[in-house]
Amino acid sequence: MDTETHVRKFQKELSAGTVALVLLVVLARATEPLYGYQIAKQLESRGGVLAGKQSALYPVLRNLHAAGLLDSHTEPSVAGPPRRYYRITDLGRHVLADWLATWGETRDFVENMLKDFRP
């Protein structure tokens, strides 16, 4: 049975739902502003589903910025177009705390549902 497309679709949906949370955590933990490539490399080094296609991170970063959860500034780089550095805002930290609570509830619920199930 070919389940690969279903697996991939599920991965995609899971990562779409959690990537914003992960990006906020990465930036909340960082001591200095990071640019897209550095963030992508951090996710990559931890592996997992979210490390999928890194091009998915940039639009999300931009949207978090548009929503006021991230601050950004550009700096010229020797290597090409100016790099956009991101830093978490106070609003971002508050939202992150709320998201973590929501995530905790969701995770507990899902684990609770799966607890006694043996395929």
Partner: peptide, 17 residues
């Protein structure tokens, strides 16, 4: 325009690395 810009930034960072 946005997609090309992001891709260029990423790839150039990779090249510089």
């Amino acid at each position: 325009q946005d997609a090309l810009y992001d891709a260029e930034e990423h790839v150039r960072s990779e090249l510089a690395e």
